[in-house]
Design a protein around this nucleic acid. Structure first.
Lengths: 244, 244
DNA sequence: ACGACTAGGTCAATAGCGTTGACATAACAG
DNA sequence: CTGTTATGTCAACGCTATTGACCTAGTCGT
């Protein structure tokens, strides 16, 4: 099951000859453009090759597989998310800024985000992001274990809502969820589904509005009031709910 | 772009002849089994047909396309999520119970959940769920607009974390994120990435633990203390963050 | 009971997919 | 100048979803 991905030399030196027409950057940019224009399932190596003015198989000189290309695309999206980040020193504000930047970038490239949000790229931009967010958490006074836990919760929250809202915005399978709702839910018998009938007029417009801002503020408030122990010891688990 | 999905007669009468070997139920069950056993990308009509002991194209007598079959699978997953639900009348407790049931069911079928969590099926089980959750919200004293908003936030939260954690548990592209982390992040130069290096031992085991329980309790607490107005009027927006 | 109909299955074929290996070409290194 | 290597093309393999023709067996109206 695609088990033996070798973690060898990440990419070998590529001395950029003069007659060269393709490049990793160009391929990644073109991939993102095609994904956004025609949907993620429309990104085929053949179409990508055609858009690049080359044969499809030329791409394999730069990426060993389509999946590796998608990881590079995902990392590019991360990079674009962070290029506007301006740290202020206020750690809560910086976290909010990061969350909003990532969320906005993901929704600006919704079809790419759907493919990218749940992937671990292991590439430079992702690594830089992890390093930075861990630094913010530790700088806020959390010890290592808490920094890790809160970093993971934070990035989970942002990515989860990004992926879901991006998916809701861009398919797949239908133009938009709103179509399915309008056609399917509007004609249900009111006596059998009284709650849907009573709230249908409220339901429809709300479908294109996200609950991410509310969830983010809840999370940040919880973080702000969480006990930070700096170098001190002492630990507690504030929620006893079982994991998994 | 797959635009004209006709919302006609959902499915025509199917009088179940005697010599019949296939059925919608059997096809859906077998699809879920194949998805969980061999991954979502391994569900092809040919393999599904072989697993059913029939020709691949026989499935088209029951579902007009693979996508419609996937919607039926998604709805089946919703149905299985709720079959254990026992309402207690305590609306916060019922919401928690629903969230945990859906989340657990999604993680019990992680590869199916990845394909299903962001789809709007418009099928019976989904409709029943929407109706029920709206009823809980309205029964809690929220007016129609608030009930809708809180229902959407709630289902967003549950589905977003379900999808993300299911994806983290089941691929795609790699056996598990842990592999990528271990191989990629372990060997980074500590002077360049001090925060990753300092927290790496904490980071790795935390990767297979979700922040869903924490996020859920935060959300439910916020809901519990939210102003409910019963039949009264009056409206307020508690968070001024821009949507979209 | 018989003829018409059709639900439900097979089979063959189409167009597209990712990927591989052989081949060509052109630029570079010694 | 010669060998090597980076970069592209081309043909082919086995896979995919989907379609249309075809066949068969069971049901229905008379």
């Amino acid at each position: 099951m695609a088990s033996d991905r070798v973690p060898t030399e990440r990419r070998r030196r590529r001395p950029t000859r003069s007659g060269q027409v393709l490049s990793e950057e160009l391929i990644v940019q073109t991939s993102m453009r095609l994904i956004e224009q025609h949907g993620g399932e429309a990104l085929s190596m053949r179409r990508l090759g055609a858009a690049l003015g080359s044969d499809a198989t030329a791409i394999y000189r730069y990426f060993p597989s389509k999946d590796e290309l998608l990881l590079a695309v995902a990392d590019e999206l991360i990079g674009r998310s962070l290029e506007l980040f301006r740290p202020t020193g206020n750690w809560i504000g910086d976290l909010r800024q990061l969350a909003v930047l990532v969320y906005r970038r993901n929704l600006a490239y919704p079809r790419t985000a759907v493919l990218a949000a749940s992937r671990v790229t292991g590439r430079p931009n992702e690594i830089k992001t992890v390093e930075m967010m861990l630094g913010i958490m530790r700088g806020a006074g959390f010890d290592d274990a808490e920094a890790v836990r809160h970093y993971l919760s934070f990035i989970d929250l942002v990515l989860a809502f990004s992926a879901l809202d991006a998916a809701a915005q861009s398919g797949p399978g239908t133009d938009s969820p709103e179509r399915a709702w309008r056609s399917g839910y509007a004609s249900l018998p009111p006596e059998q589904y009284p709650n849907i009938a009573a709230t249908f007029d409220e339901l429809l417009p709300r479908l294109s509005s996200s609950s991410f801002p509310l969830a983010l503020e809840l999370f940040l408030t919880a973080l702000e009031t969480a006990p930070r122990e700096g170098r001190r010891a002492g630990r507690q688990n504030r929620h006893g709910m079982a994991h998994r």
